[in-house]
Write a protein that binds this DNA or RNA. Sequence first.
DNA 1: TTGTAAGCGTTATCAC
DNA 2: GTGATAACGCTTACAA
Lengths: 351, 351
Amino acid sequence: MAAQTRGPRGKQPTINDVAALAGVSKKTVSRVINRSEFLTDKTRTAVEKAIEQLGFVPNPQARALAFRRNFLIALLHDNPNAQTVLNFQHGVLDAIRDSDLALLVRPVDRGSDRLLDDVRAFLEKQRPIGALLLPPISENDDLATLCEDLGVRYVRIGSARIDDAKHCISSNDREMVAEAVRGLVELGHRRIGFVRGPVGFRSAAEREEGFREALAGAALELPDDLHAPGDYCYPAGIEAGEALLSLAEPPTAIFCSNDEMAAGVMSVAHGKGIRVPGELSIIGFDDSPTATHIWPALSTVRWPIREMGIRAAQTLVPDFLSPRIEGDGDKSNILASTFVERQSVAPPPDR
Amino acid sequence: MAAQTRGPRGKQPTINDVAALAGVSKKTVSRVINRSEFLTDKTRTAVEKAIEQLGFVPNPQARALAFRRNFLIALLHDNPNAQTVLNFQHGVLDAIRDSDLALLVRPVDRGSDRLLDDVRAFLEKQRPIGALLLPPISENDDLATLCEDLGVRYVRIGSARIDDAKHCISSNDREMVAEAVRGLVELGHRRIGFVRGPVGFRSAAEREEGFREALAGAALELPDDLHAPGDYCYPAGIEAGEALLSLAEPPTAIFCSNDEMAAGVMSVAHGKGIRVPGELSIIGFDDSPTATHIWPALSTVRWPIREMGIRAAQTLVPDFLSPRIEGDGDKSNILASTFVERQSVAPPPDR
DNA sequence: TTGTAAGCGTTATCAC
DNA sequence: GTGATAACGCTTACAA
């Protein structure tokens, strides 16, 4: 692999060494490194040979200084769901493997009134090539504008199109929720509860719209008492479960805006001795590890977050990635969620 | 906050601007930045004032070039458990918040025979101040040696002391497992099953030793049929559960080497109609989100992974972190795990 | 205690 | 097409 073995503390060869060996100027070597078009095949070959021979690797720090840009991608996030963040991270890392890029992780504080200043300071300091914004902060338009202003490329992840295709990878949450809920209706469910995500989250709104769309399509209603608030966390699921399942006429199915809350609802059902899915069907969203770990395994909407990470990186820095399959040629950058059937859904109990 | 507002594309002030304004040489400014001791309070104050006034922030790229070192911490990991990685990440980020450091994430491939070369290339290229090694790759001594050779500081995370205190943050897995299992014994359990972690993982070995220690202390045996292999993943928990709970004389309690496998065992119990904890007690390890999401909530050993992240960062780069509480003064860098009681443990059923 | 000069390893400018 | 030469913004000698 290594063309040249150096001692552990051996000095790295520099562009000067390469230039000397190849008998050209350092600028020419620089041109080769940066794939300039104006080069004789002959000189290029000579330089490449020297590079190979010396095992030369351009120093990223020096390049960063000269370019005024670091060869880094920054991942900005403020996501309550650890699994989501990590899966996305893995996707990005998959994509930039074998490239010269590295991944910088930066959690931010959505609530802070210094958010913009913080991010600005971070970007001005690290000067990454680009930034990846995960929801919910990806929904903040000011952040996108900031990136633009600072000359930092950006791609936002969302549950719906929140920017043009060059700047946004999104999923079709609404559609998939609607489809999942229609499935419930087709099984015969008429009283279907809904546990919402946090106010202010676009994803929560999208999922609710999908839910209401499906009900409306079946001429069903969503009475207020079947609509529970939530915040994407387990305790909210518990509360929602308590509320919904204590009703005089409880729902026969509950759609939860994410898996954690679904786990909460399911715990309440177990506690009350309500059989899942026999007496109560439950659907979640995310397909997090929780979905398979709970019993019975949760039917849920799989959000292709890892694929979104890959696509996000490809969209952000196509020019830095080694040539690879062009994907499915889909430039819309809308990745499809899928419904994952497990064991938490069944027809409603007979009357 | 910002002492000075510049237009979005305004040039950043450089060390020269500061020097000019303060009426000193750039080297003196450099000294102030780097907290040199040999400075008059007067000059220091003057320079600091100029820095403040200009809103000067040293350019990390330039410093990196001159220092031959980037102001980064690299997180090297190859951990199957996403939650662990992310919690650790958060700990590290907590610690380096408000410092000049940033966090680089680098997953590696434990199985690859190019592991060492890959890491070497990465470190030579990014030149981080230091590297944090998460288990299981933290158990690889060659990696530590490599860091040493490259002049990259390192700290390894382990389930047991695997290096000297300056290079290792560890937990007391063995002790805590022993304690948890003794609790089971005290409740009256005599047939206790064990689900092991993957072969080759130090953590798996430690936990097994703790388990055996507790049994031995109570003069109990671990018959072969109560010992199930595993790999820290859910399906292994399922398999182990099937095996253990199909026994002619099944265990009344099962210790699982992590929460995921515990979730698997619990699912099997539910499927077989075995009441938890009435007929079967289950204990896990990690205190991952899964532990609270499943029903009944899992009693488990909480591995203080986030705190370990904080401590790891403090140990790795104490000189870069803003002055803070010295911690508990414990320099042993052994962080205590704790047993978290939830609802999955009870006395064995009466005969 | 402070300043001067010479890098650090690359890219940009602008001639040739 | 290619090559001097000057940045890029900071630090490390070494001198004062």
